[in-house]
């Protein structure tokens, strides 16, 4: 066992990889004592996307108050009257993500660990998304297939056990969330695009316009979404009479269709016992609906994390850290940010 004294297994997690500043206290990987997320979405909305420098500045300003709030909500005081720390380790996302944003969280987390004399644990953001499902449903059995979809990543991952991953496929260009943002901007729906398209699609006919399904049926588990915006623009130019709701519904259906079909094929080929969704796009209602249909049809146990657990949060970081700590021990204090960190 590489683990230094785990105490009660209470870990403070910190997440600053993109535009959410988050802190959470999780006990033994599964019991969430608190989870605080401060979203910067309003700061970035006028630019139609996340501005790295604005994100980094906001992290510096709000991180300590967010951590303090996580202790308050967990009913803990940071240090007891006897000088003992209330938590047993501090974890932070060290990649992938925006380098300047990651550095704020990593730097603060390492310093907190030093100040409280507890271990520091560096967490891979992608791995944390995979653990979000296990955090809410610890009874999920391996092998698990996870579809991870957000503004930054789109991938199908096979999880054969704790810390054992295989990326079965991923996007070769834009992430699914980026496609939603681009099309939403074109339709004048504002930012972030995902929720806007989801809401408008309810009023549209998802069969009115059939947009292409890029790379569908090509035998791989890879995706390509960069051409979809062009397809949408061309269609609207040719048919100016279409309603925005029909365009939104048709576009969303094309994305969801490719995501779900490929995930289903991957799950079948590896004999998955469970199927999970993760990442911000996992909050999309049509994706959730189609995903559950697949699980039902194939008799696979499906799990949809709550919307709060799909989007970036620190509970998933603290939970992942518990498993990393047991398998790899603490991380060195000279850990830096790894903006292009992959999953292996």
């Amino acid at each position: 066992m590489t683990m230094s004294n785990p105490g009660r297994g209470r870990i403070l997690g910190i997440e600053t990889s993109c535009d959410e500043t988050a802190a959470a206290v999780v006990q033994r990987g599964t019991s969430v004592l608190s989870s605080v997320v401060s979203s910067q979405v309003d700061l970035h909305a006028r630019y139609g996307g996340v501005v790295p420098e604005i994100a980094s500045r906001a992290h510096v300003d709000v991180l300590v108050p967010v951590v303090a709030q996580a202790f308050v909500e967990a009913g803990l005081s940071e240090v007891s009257a006897g000088g003992e720390s209330a938590i047993d380790a501090v974890a932070a996302t060290y990649g992938p993500g925006l380098v300047g944003a990651l550095l704020v969280g990593v730097s603060a987390a390492k310093t907190l660990a030093l100040a409280w004399d507890v271990p520091f644990i560096a967490v891979n953001h992608l791995e944390a998304h995979l653990y979000a499902a296990l955090l809410e449903d610890p009874d999920l059995e391996f092998p698990l297939v996870v579809l991870l979809v957000s503004g930054g990543h789109t991938m199908i991952v096979l999880m054969e056990g704790h810390g054992q991953y295989q990326v079965l496929g991923s996007t070769i260009d834009d992430a699914a969330g980026e496609a939603f943002d681009k099309v939403a901007r074109y339709l004048g729906l504002g930012y972030p695009g995902g929720p806007a398209i989801d809401a408008l699609s309810v009023h549209g006919d998802l069969e009115a316009i059939r947009f292409p399904r890029p790379m569908a049926g090509d035998g791989t588990y890879d995706f390509s979404f960069s051409g979809l915006k062009t397809a949408v623009v061309n269609h609207v130019r040719k048919h100016p009479e279409v309603t925005a709701a029909d365009v939104a519904a048709g576009f969303q259906e094309a994305v969801v269709d490719v995501l779900v079909t490929k995930t289903q094929a991957a799950a079948r080929s590896v004999g998955a016992r469970g199927l999970c969704l993760g990442g911000g796009v996992a909050a999309n209602s049509r994706l959730r609906e189609r995903f559950l249909d697949v699980c039902l049809a194939d008799g696979i146990r499906g799990f949809l994390p709550s919307r709060a657990m799909c989007t970036d949060n620190a509970a998933m970081v603290a939970s992942t850290a518990w498993y990393r700590w047991q398998s790899d021990g603490p991380s060195p204090l000279d850990t830096g940010a790894h903006p292009n960190l992959g999953l292996s």
Binding site: V60, L63, G100, T111
Partner: peptide
């Protein structure tokens, strides 16, 4: 330099808060 500057300020704030 913004990025470096924030590393020190974030660490200083964390230390002040922790202790």
């Amino acid at each position: 330099m913004f990025t470096g500057l924030r590393v020190g300020v974030a660490a200083g704030k964390a230390l002040a808060y922790a202790r």
